[in-house]
Lab assay of single mutants.
Amino acid sequence: LLPSFEIGAWTEDDVYCWVQQLVRKGDSSAEMSVYASLFKENNITGKRLLLLEEEDLKDMGIVSKGHIIHFKSAIEKLTHDYIN
């Protein structure tokens, strides 16, 4: 489970856990499981996660359009939940 809904306070480890949970919950393929490490390697914290754009995801090595859409949708939901 994630430490809190205060996404802005999430550490790199918290984001890593979130990506792992996202991959487990989704209908995503096994190749998506490597993405948790990509987020950690790129020092993505909660604040940075909320700022990620499609180009950032591509720069991190996420090239599948479907996977990018999956992440963007999940990040938008997080942003919405965080604001409300």
Rank of each mutant, 00 (worst) to 15 (best):
1 L>R: 11
3 P>I: 03
3 P>S: 15
4 S>L: 07
6 E>N: 11
6 E>Q: 03
6 E>D: 14
7 I>P: 08
8 G>A: 14
8 G>S: 14
9 A>E: 15
9 A>V: 06
13 D>Y: 01
14 D>C: 01
14 D>V: 06
15 V>N: 11
15 V>L: 03
15 V>E: 05
16 Y>I: 08
16 Y>C: 10
17 C>L: 12
17 C>R: 14
18 W>A: 05
18 W>G: 01
19 V>D: 07
19 V>H: 00
20 Q>K: 11
20 Q>F: 00
20 Q>Y: 04
21 Q>Y: 03
21 Q>A: 09
22 L>W: 03
22 L>A: 10
23 V>N: 06
23 V>W: 07
25 K>L: 07
26 G>V: 10
26 G>S: 08
27 D>C: 11
27 D>N: 13
27 D>G: 12
28 S>T: 13
29 S>M: 09
29 S>L: 08
30 A>P: 11
30 A>N: 08
31 E>M: 03
31 E>L: 01
32 M>F: 12
32 M>Q: 08
35 Y>H: 05
36 A>D: 06
36 A>K: 01
37 S>Q: 14
38 L>R: 06
39 F>E: 08
39 F>V: 02
39 F>R: 01
40 K>A: 06
40 K>S: 01
41 E>S: 10
43 N>H: 15
43 N>W: 06
43 N>T: 01
44 I>V: 08
46 G>Y: 06
48 R>D: 11
48 R>C: 03
52 L>H: 04
52 L>N: 01
54 E>T: 04
54 E>R: 04
55 E>R: 09
55 E>F: 02
56 D>M: 04
56 D>L: 05
58 K>D: 06
58 K>C: 08
59 D>G: 08
59 D>S: 12
61 G>S: 02
62 I>D: 01
62 I>N: 03
63 V>L: 11
63 V>D: 08
67 H>A: 13
67 H>I: 08
68 I>W: 01
70 H>V: 07
72 K>T: 09
73 S>P: 00
74 A>I: 09
74 A>D: 03
74 A>E: 11
75 I>W: 01
75 I>V: 04
76 E>L: 03
76 E>S: 10
76 E>C: 02
77 K>S: 09
78 L>G: 01
78 L>E: 00
80 H>T: 12
83 I>E: 15
83 I>Q: 14
84 N>A: 13
